[in-house]
Nucleic acid binder design. Structure first.
Lengths: 153, 153
DNA sequence: TATTGTTATACTCTATAACTATA
DNA sequence: TATAGTTATAGAGTATAACAATA
């Protein structure tokens, strides 16, 4: 007799918290990109826009570091935001190698609208989870992040 | 005067739990792939091997569904596991379109060794987080996953 | 000599259409 | 006609090397 499976069990993987984090993140990312598509943004271009709004005059290299992506991969993202006139890219007068990034009024407005939509989407996803649980989750996730920084040092 | 940024603030992004989940997941994935590279496995091929060990006789289409990847993308993963003689791929006698996947002894042994290493790696990452907090995190993540399933229905 | 931003390129992951062999 | 697995291919996302301009 050949063995056959009726219902697939992923029990051994469910033992790992990381597995649950991956599955939840897949859901969150799909939802988020769905929300952001209404503004012609993706997760990465939205994050870039938010950081430029929050940090007027940020350099491309600083932005790449903050987004944890390589400098070459940022170029096309910045190109697009600039072409849509959501940001400006000006030479730094005291160091003409660098560009300073700033959001335009249109950029700040789009960022606000997108942030509201993203916030509503988060609230819907997390509505069953009370504030205390959320902050203990965030605290735990921050500890994991910190863990990797201490490994690298 | 041109505005310049000394220290980049990602405060607006940190408001979103999803942002923390993404950052933590990046750390977990990098660490996990590092651990698995010792066994010449990646996250996806390890997950596939675990599910084949746990579900002897699983079909490729069932495995693709469980891994949440498309059938074409599974082929190359299965090819590699078969070439390494970690799994066997046999025709189902009652439906000669389908393949049944089973782990070999070598496959089960590698899976065990890898699972031990992955478990140790998880334990190190989560050591500061007590059992109760872990299970409340897993519970919350499961609710988020369930949320997306109810949206799609 | 080192750094900022850029170009070219490659590798992984993922998604879709179309094919084959079976049902 | 529908399904299981396959092939080919294309699109994201990400990584490295090498370049021009500037420091």
């Amino acid at each position: 007799m050949q063995p056959q499976i009726d219902k697939v069990s992923d029990a051994p993987l469910r033992e790992f918290v990381g597995y649950h984090i991956k599955r939840a993140f897949n859901v969150i990312q799909a939802d988020l990109n769905d929300v952001l598509s209404r503004f012609d943004l993706r997760m990465i271009s939205y994050s870039a826009l938010v950081l430029i709004v929050e940090n007027p005059g940020i350099r491309q290299s600083q932005l790449a570091t903050a987004l944890a992506i390589e400098r070459p991969n940022l170029v096309v993202i910045i190109d697009e935001l600039e072409k849509r006139e959501l940001i400006t890219r000006d030479r730094l007068l005291t160091d003409r190698r660098a560009y300073l990034l700033q959001a335009t009024l249109a950029g700040r407005r789009l960022c606000d609208k997108a942030a509201t939509a993203v916030g509503a989407h988060e609230e819907a996803l997390f509505e069953e989870i009370d504030k205390d649980t959320r902050s203990s989750i965030v605290d735990a996730l921050n500890r994991i992040e910190a863990k990797s920084r201490e490994d690298r040092s």
